[in-house]
Design a protein around this nucleic acid. Structure first.
Lengths: 330, 330
DNA sequence: ACTCCTTGGGAGATCGATCTCCCACACTGT
DNA sequence: ACAGTGTGGGAGATCGATCTCCCAAGGAGT
């Protein structure tokens, strides 16, 4: 009943532990083809699986990468985690996903837990641009850490993010090219770097007079609240840029309930290009993140020498995905 | 730069490794209060964190529970994983979530990976009632495994699930009490135990003549396909029971696009009570799973002696959540 | 035929924390 | 004062796999 160990496999194959290890761990070393076969045969017959803790202890490496996301309730982060998982798996590793429940205290706790020798490196999508910094810095001093999708000040490490300013310009240019002039912003979570950047880019482009509705959190419920406020001002607005898809979905459904036609009276855009957008009629224009390329880059940085991870921000180019919520003919 | 080890802490505190271990691992053993303080002081000062691999190797336990879900793209499974995570964390452990991408081959691979000494026990929400069996059985022979939310034949272990038949009856009774008589079923994924049970319960209650639309997968896209078919038959149907929320959401939005009023002409119900349901107008009636109680039970079983995990199915009582998609006054 | 390589393979050390003894000391009771 | 009892604390073994030597055998070159 007790699990077979390497020494059992070695005995069954009539070789030493060292040889069995060389075969099974794939150490780059010539081993006689016949012995290789005997060891593999024995391992299979006994149902041997290498003990992960023992290997990790000896090699000092776990083959696991961790990622802490603000909340899996937001489908964007599920999508993000999925992109990372694919890249990690392609490299022969495993990804462990932790949820910070949008709380920097829980986030710090999750980081601590993962760092207890469970992961080789850690990716963090920081909850807050300010408050997440210290925990990330502490982590970065003990293990490779790379920020993903958002940055945090004082983190002491590099961040791989979207170029939010460029994304906002894409959206605004698109709306303006369709003749929309009275554009409002619905955004949330100014504490996050992405929320702040999107707001800043909007304000820079449209001036401080433009209508902005700021909400406490990235939830569809917040989106509905915004929808009510926008509906009240329907005569002074002909387009709404939302800082997140979840907001856009709540907003559109509320606007429609208030008999505001989308895009007829008000065009609406999302941000993040999640599946949610396809739910509604009309489907919603959004910004697609190059998640695969970002994931690849983040993992490369994670394995790079610490010197290449100095505090800085790398920005990836966004892509506009036009759907019927802005352009009925699209 | 190299991480401090227990022996460093012991030296700094002027005690032996054994004593330092007793203090930091909290072994139930009397240690002089003054020494306790000195050890804790030293650990804090050095920034000591116990090496997880070493502890796991020595104790044979990792404090980690794994769960393999069919797909995190379905928000129900995110919710389910979250309920488990809370219970696990409350018990001082950690939950690792793996996504099987709705593929039994990937599922088997994920199970194998997690079982390589990374987890003390494994929860599986099997992709398929038939095809997932062998991989689960193999796992259950090596470590504690409990099925969750769905069962699989030949799994060799216990399953903690919802009483799907009772849930279906709740929905049908509710619809019938509102005067709906021509009730259709929209379901997907008959390969899963929950899909099969829901279909069976529906057929048993409504007979084989009732309209049923079977779809290949639990996705909102499939829900839209169903919506088109139901819309064509709008005159012969006054209610639709969906086998999953994601289906219901796609269905409702398509019905509305086809100018079918909900619940006016057709009442619609979901299944799983995810947040998605709140997105639309009207919000959708659904079935709530007692996830907390189920999670608690599953974790208890995971820690029970193997004898208590013989192949069987435990069913938990569902709860009907009435919303406006069936009863406009609700 | 002899030395020099090359290459396969084994013995033992090692990773870091915990557990199992076992010892030393203090205290009690006679 | 001495055996008996209990309690804090240390030395060394141990978990399982890998890594570092180092040795043996066989082939090549002179």
């Amino acid at each position: 009943m007790t699990a077979p160990r390497l020494i059992d496999v070695a005995a069954a194959a009539g070789v030493s532990r060292a040889t069995a290890s060389r075969v099974l761990a794939g150490t780059p070393r010539n081993v006689d083809a016949d012995l290789v076969r005997r060891v593999e045969e024995a391992a299979r017959r006994l149902g041997y699986r290498t003990n992960h803790s023992a290997r990790a202890l000896r090699t000092g490496t776990t083959g696991t990468v961790g990622v802490v996301v603000p909340s899996l309730a937001n489908p964007y982060f599920v999508q993000l985690a999925d992109a990372l998982a694919q890249q990690v798996r392609a490299a022969g590793g495993q990804l462990v996903v932790s949820d910070a429940a949008n709380d920097t205290a829980i986030e710090a706790e999750q980081i601590e837990t993962l760092l207890g020798g469970r992961v080789d490196g850690l990716l963090v999508v920081p909850v807050s641009a300010g408050a997440s910094g210290p925990a990330v810095r502490a982590a970065a001093e003990r293990a490779p850490v790379v920020l993903f999708d958002r940055w945090a000040t004082g983190s002491g490490t590099v961040a791989v993010t979207l170029d939010n300013a460029a994304a906002m310009r894409l959206l605004l240019d698109h709306l303006e090219s369709l003749g929309r002039r009275r554009i409002a912003l619905v955004a949330a979570d100014q504490a996050s770097s992405s929320g702040a950047e999107r707001l800043a880019a909007f304000t820079e482009a449209r001036g401080t007079d433009a209508t902005t509705v700021l909400l406490p959190s990235f939830t569809t419920d917040a989106g509905r609240t915004a929808g009510r406020r926008i509906a009240e001002q329907r005569d002074r607005i002909d387009a709404v840029v939302c800082g997140a898809d979840v907001l856009a979905v709540g907003l559109v459904s509320t606007l429609q309930r208030s008999a505001v036609s989308v895009p007829g009276q008000i065009a609406v855009t999302g941000f993040d290009d999640t599946e949610l957008l396809e739910l509604l009629d009309p489907p919603i224009t959004s910004i697609r993140h190059p998640l695969t390329a970002m994931a690849e880059r983040a993992l490369t940085l994670l394995q790079a020498p610490a010197g290449e991870r100095e505090e800085s921000v790398e920005r990836f180019a966004p892509q506009l995905v036009v759907r019927a919520s802005t352009d009925a003919d699209a």
